[in-house]
Structure formats: structure tokens, C-alpha cells
Design a protein around this nucleic acid. Structure first.
Lengths: 103, 103
DNA sequence: CATATATGTAACCTACGTGTTACATTTGAG
DNA sequence: CTCAAATGTAACACGTAGGTTACATATATG
């Protein structure tokens, strides 16, 4: 699964947000959702397969943490398109659009 | 449809990339894909509904162009998570350095 | 006005993603 | 050794996304 698809799911985005603040074990992640633990486990696998997170074993627990690279891919793509777009517009057009948005 | 889901589809990402370089009419977009025109038309509608693009009529053609905000939403989210993550990583490195100093 | 062109909509089909429950696997503890 | 805890996997159900073809809706043009 590619990174964009991985991040399209709201549950997986939430997991990414959790892990952005630090390492968490699978159980701790699962208990923050209303869905079943296997469902969360699947999301974690998809996040691993898309390289958004990685996991390490600690006894019988698995500790998940965020992997920066994949996130950068998303941010960079979106930012690059946005830059092309804004370069393409001249200052006047941009100004007029902002006027319309305020109206 | 939310922006993340909109951007998860490779066809729609290609359309966004095309439009980042300038306005295009529906037909010009459609002919660059192997799928049927109605299929592309649907993608365009989804992109409109998620505010990634907007369209204006010009005679019997419809000219599509990129809309900046929605893209920014994606870029900002990804970048924000990445920053939290790297801040967290810096903290860990600092912690480990302190450990070393004590050793 | 009649017709062709450009585009979107509707109805339908299929594949796939996401949920569930039941089971397997690993590992710490008594 | 045995058992419970933590986690992942398998099999299945089901909704929805995305493809197709057929049709509808403007709008330019002869």
C-alpha cells in the first residue's frame, strides 16, 4: 500500500498523530479506538508496509514509532504541487482570487 | 470526500499534477488517461467536491484549475506530524548524549 | 432549426478495503 | 510446566470506490 492510501484512512491518520508524539505499544494504541483490536492491528501492519511506522519487540509487547521519511514524501508532493500552482498564477490573479474568497 | 482520500487515488494525483502547471479543459485531461471519459469526469467531480480543483464554463467546455488551500491542508498535516516526530527524535538524541556524558 | 461537440449523470458490475469473530503464536509469571 | 497476557493472522461479511456503457444536457455551427 502506498503512503497516500495509507494516510487516507482517518484511523491511520490518528495513529500517525499519536506516534508523532512518541513511541507507543500496540495495546495502548488499540485502546484509544472503538474498533476491535485486530482491526487496529491490521492498520498497524498497513502502516508498517507503507513505511510510515516501524515496530520493535520488547518482551511480548510491540513498540511502534513513526518513520519520518514516508511522511516527508506526502508533504513534499503536496507542497511541490502547491508551489507549481502559485508560481503559475501571477500576482494580480492571486489578488483577485483572495478578494473573491473574502466576498 | 475529504482531501486525503481525494489525493489517495493515483489518477486524481496525476490530474492535480497536470493542473498544477495550468488550467486545462476536461477533454484535454481525459485524453491523457486510458480510462473512459466518464471515469475521468467522475474523478473531476470528486476533486471539485473536495475543493482541490474548481471549474469554470467556457462555451461548451469546462476549464479546470487547481485550488491551493486543499493542497496546503495535506502538506501542512504531513509536515506538522513530521516536525513533532523530529522534535521528539532530537529530544531522544539529547537524552542519549547525556547518558554518554554520565558514562 | 437540426446536428455535432463537449461534458456530465445514471445504472450497473466488480474488486477491494475495513470491520468482525475465532484461532495461532510468542513470552512473561506462578 | 502451565497458564494468562499481548499481539498478530485467517476467514468471512459487507459497503463503497472506481470502472464500463448508455443516456441526458448544454452549446456552438451549418
Amino acid at each position: 500500500m502506498d503512503v497516500f492510501t495509507a494516510v487516507a484512512d482517518p484511523t491511520r491518520r490518528s495513529i500517525v498523530e499519536m506516534l508523532a508524539h512518541g513511541e507507543l505499544e500496540a495495546g495502548a494504541i488499540a485502546e484509544r479506538f472503538d474498533i476491535s483490536r485486530p482491526a487496529v492491528s491490521r492498520h498497524l501492519r498497513l502502516l508498517r508496509e507503507s513505511s510510515l511506522v516501524c515496530a520493535r519487540k520488547d518482551g511480548r509487547r510491540r513498540l511502534y514509532r513513526l518513520e519520518g521519511h514516508a511522511l516527508t514524501e506526502v508533504a513534499d508532493w503536496a507542497e511541490r504541487q502547491r508551489v507549481f500552482w502559485s508560481d503559475r498564477l501571477d500576482a494580480l490573479e492571486r489578488h483577485l482570487e483572495e478578494e473573491e474568497e473574502r466576498a
